[in-house]
Simulated scan of single mutants.
Amino acid sequence: MSIKTPKLTVVGAGPGDVDLITVKAIKVLKTADVVLYDALVNEELLDFINPKAELIFVGKRRGCYRYQQEQINELIVARAKTHGHVVRLKGGDPFIFGRGAEEMEFAANFGIETAMVPGISSSLAVPAYQNIPLTKRGSAESFWVITGTTKDHKLSNDVALAAKSNATIVVLMGMGKLAEIVKLFQQENKNDLPVAIIQNGTRTNEKVGIGTVDTILEIVKNQELSNPAIIVLGEVVNHRAILANVQEEYAKALID
């Protein structure tokens, strides 16, 4: 029996829709000896994995921690040494609040070869699926992608800085801090700024709430929106309704 070279490949699974995983990611999954996957990964993607590979569910969602991060790091190293090619399959893009870089660094400290396959980030794809562009001429010249909850379980200070800008703000993992986020934007007199909350983005069970800084908390309550969800704040949120109106007017014109 030949000894396999220990290797870690961190792979982005995309935001949820199975079709949004990359061709390169699928190729890598077919070569895996072990796959460690997260709660946010669509389980339909497991069908693309080498049928002989060991599959290990490691959780990683708010309130769902089957393994702590330190245990995941150690599991990667242990399986790489005993099995060969370990694929760490993570939702979205592993380098955008996915801790993929930490896992690669930990493995590299044990002499394990590492590689990374980028994924389509939910911060971009989820708003796009709802016809919300993060940039649009006349509405936003830039965008911020911010974690809603830091390592210390507090709201990132960057949200307060972003609230002072004219940029589109995308907050990941921020539903538990939504009231704090709203307050920061109200303090900047942005009460009427459009807000979108998108739960289970790009999936078949997607839910959307559209409002303003002043109304979004009530909308979240009434529509029972919760994690996993993305918060989008900015004038670009209005593009969704503008596009729908244009399409409706065009359809009416055809009938007339």
Rank of each mutant, 00 (worst) to 15 (best):
P94F: 00
I120T: 08
G174H: 04
Q186W: 03
I3D: 11
I197M: 06
T204G: 05
K4D: 07
P133M: 09
T22A: 13
V35Y: 00
I181E: 07
I181W: 07
V23G: 04
I26K: 07
L20Q: 06
L46H: 03
R240Q: 12
E188H: 11
G14P: 03
E249V: 11
I26G: 05
S123Y: 09
A160E: 13
F95W: 14
N166M: 13
R62M: 14
E44T: 11
Q68Y: 11
T114Y: 01
I132H: 09
D214W: 03
D152M: 10
T22V: 03
R66F: 11
E206C: 03
R61Q: 10
K90D: 03
G98T: 05
F97R: 05
D93K: 08
G91R: 00
V28F: 00
K52R: 09
E43Y: 08
V23Q: 05
Y129V: 10
G234P: 01
Q199L: 11
T149K: 13
I181C: 02
N205E: 10
F97E: 03
K24D: 14
G119W: 02
I197F: 07
K90L: 07
A13H: 01
A39V: 02
E218Y: 07
N50K: 08
K90N: 03
I169F: 01
G201A: 08
N238F: 13
F106N: 13
G138E: 05
P15F: 02
G100P: 01
E235H: 12
I231A: 00
V23T: 11
K60C: 10
